[in-house]
Simulated scan of single mutants.
Amino acid sequence: MARTAPSRPAPAGRPAPLAALAVTAAGTAWLGAVDPAGSGLFPPCPVPRLTGLLCPGCGGLRAVHALAGGEFGVALGANALVVLGAAALAVLWLAWWLRPQRPPRVRAWHAGAVLAVAVGFTVVRNLPFGAALSP
């Protein structure tokens, strides 16, 4: 009896990347229309209130608001890590779009690398020489 190769699932096509893009675009458009700094819709971040330190996400909503308005310098000033993360996600999405049958794989070390960058960013932005990274 001859062995047959295991069947591969059919390529998913592009509905998943398009759905991810639509959800991201809708959220970004809404955040672009609503100013997080002055709308009163968003509660203040509890980390600086409780610790006096800036977390890696502080200024993230303002950064996305500025990106949606095309203000890249303002976005970088609000949270450079969010801007770089958005650029990385855009590159990953493009790879997913170009090869939907083989989406980019997330490996265990990726989570460790993201955590290390976030911790490093947090430490630097809370030191006197990292004041430029503060929102």
Rank of each mutant, 00 (worst) to 15 (best):
M1G: 15
T4W: 12
A5V: 13
P6Q: 10
S7A: 15
S7I: 12
R8K: 14
R8D: 13
P9C: 08
P9T: 14
A10Y: 10
A10P: 15
G13F: 01
R14P: 06
R14D: 07
P15M: 10
P15N: 09
P15Q: 10
P15S: 14
A16T: 12
A16N: 02
A16H: 02
A19G: 14
A25I: 04
G27D: 06
G27W: 01
T28H: 02
A29H: 00
L31P: 00
G32W: 03
G32M: 06
A33F: 09
A33V: 02
A37K: 04
A37H: 01
G38L: 09
S39Y: 01
S39G: 12
G40L: 11
F42S: 02
C45W: 05
C45S: 09
T51M: 04
T51E: 07
L53H: 13
L53R: 13
C55R: 07
G59L: 04
G59V: 05
G60A: 13
G60Y: 05
R62F: 01
A63I: 01
A63E: 01
V64N: 00
V64K: 00
H65R: 04
H65Q: 05
A66K: 00
A66M: 02
L67Q: 01
G69C: 03
G70R: 01
G70Q: 01
G70E: 02
E71Y: 03
V74P: 05
L76D: 02
G77I: 06
N79R: 03
A80V: 00
L81D: 03
L81R: 01
V82E: 02
V82C: 06
L84H: 00
L84E: 04
A86K: 02
A86Y: 02
A88C: 15
A90W: 06
V91K: 06
L92E: 06
L92T: 06
W93Y: 07
L94F: 12
W96H: 14
W96Q: 04
W97D: 06
L98K: 08
L98I: 11
P100S: 08
P100R: 04
Q101K: 11
Q101T: 12
R102Y: 07
P104G: 07
P104I: 08
R105D: 14
V106Q: 08
R107T: 13
R107H: 13
R107V: 14
A111Q: 00
L115R: 07
L115A: 15
A116F: 07
V117M: 08
V119F: 08
V119N: 04
F121E: 04
F121I: 10
T122V: 09
V123E: 10
R125L: 03
R125Q: 14
L127V: 10
L127S: 13
P128T: 00
P128C: 03
G130C: 06
A131M: 06
L133A: 02
P135A: 07
